[in-house]
Nucleic acid binder design. Structure first.
Lengths: 190, 190
DNA sequence: TCGTGCTATGCAACTCGTTGCATAGCAAGT
DNA sequence: ACTTGCTATGCAACGAGTTGCATAGCACGA
């Protein structure tokens, strides 16, 4: 399980509340990990009772109070130990691939719309990633780090992960084009 | 949930026992879906009691008997209805990406070996996929289907899914090279 | 004959993740 | 006054998926 570790990384990058974490998991962290607020609150609670993180009540004006979490020494140690443990390469789960093979026993042409919808979703994500790259990772050349910005290593590693997301979306778009061309060959000739 | 649907597709391609299904999930179906024998047995049982599949006892010589499952009408209908329902594009989970961003708070150089291990695993899978493609999808040209072989649509759709696996592995290898180059920049200069 | 290993099926306990629902403060529009 | 919507946290129940263990037949080699 890596959710706790994803939370540790995110809190090290910047402390925040459960709610804030949930929103990050819809954006930058969401490039490679997803979680609902439920799961985040539950895991945060466990992490707090394990001494991995510490909570601090922060009153806010115009909004409900929040609990701001930050990483404790035990959490840093746990992360470090996990980083040094080897993990297995992830196994894949593609509903869409099941559908594509299943289409052989139904109407292949009926799947075209669905595949087009997925292609569009991946195009949207790609645009979103590219906009984020433009915003966060272009501009001041190496060395000229803006004040308050994260140090070089952190920035560079965030960037390479984002490039992974971009490569993934580009690959998917190309493959879905291949799928569409294949499905088209069975639509009319059926 | 698509496990039941993945099982339906696999049984339509060829009837088989729970054990045989588990092995297919380690090979061709495993390109895009994984499941342990536990899950398969449990789901098969539910599917049988729902009337989606039918079991037939098959005595074997030199081996324990097996229960061979095949798809019933209700199962075919359930698959068809699922195929016509839209699904959400899958969300991603990459432990390795968590580690890479986490490396900013530890020793980036220590991650190099792990990334190299993953790169090798993806190279192995790519080789495996390419061998499968060579074996199953080259040779007799379109139209000249061998006797007993699955019909054109089934074959073509299996092939396009395999091409997806190949594209995925190639993308991963390329990205992991990018990751290694990035990590290398922080190893010596740390 | 004893261990190893493959086929074949299954139970029990657990963790992970999702969904539905509930609460509560405050802002802004109608 | 009422509704809508955002921040913020949480419970309860369920379903999906993993892990450890157990059983049993048979083959094969040391």
């Amino acid at each position: 399980m890596a959710l706790e570790h994803a939370i540790l990384v995110s809190l090290l990058e910047k402390p925040g509340s459960g709610y804030e974490l949930a929103r990050r998991f819809e954006r930058s962290i969401g490039y490679f990990w997803t979680a609902t607020h439920q799961q985040i609150y539950r895991v945060l609670k466990r992490m707090e009772s394990d001494g991995w993180v510490e909570a601090r009540d922060v009153p806010q004006q115009g909004r409900p109070d929040k609990k701001e979490y930050s990483v404790a020494d035990l959490g840093r140690a746990a992360l470090s130990s996990w980083l040094h443990d080897p993990i297995e390469p992830e196994s894949v789960r593609h509903d869409l691939a099941v559908k594509i093979r299943g289409a052989a026993f139904d109407d292949p042409a009926a799947l075209i719309r669905e595949v087009e919808r997925h292609r569009q979703a991946h195009r949207d994500r790609l645009e979103h990633y590219l906009a984020g790259e433009e915003r966060d990772f272009t501009g001041p050349e190496a060395g000229a780090t803006a004040p308050g910005a994260p140090p070089d290593a952190e920035r560079e590693l965030q960037h390479v992960v984002l490039r992974g997301g971009i490569a993934y979306e580009r690959m998917m778009i190309g493959w879905l084009d291949d799928v569409l061309a294949t499905l088209a060959r069975f639509g009319p000739g059926r």
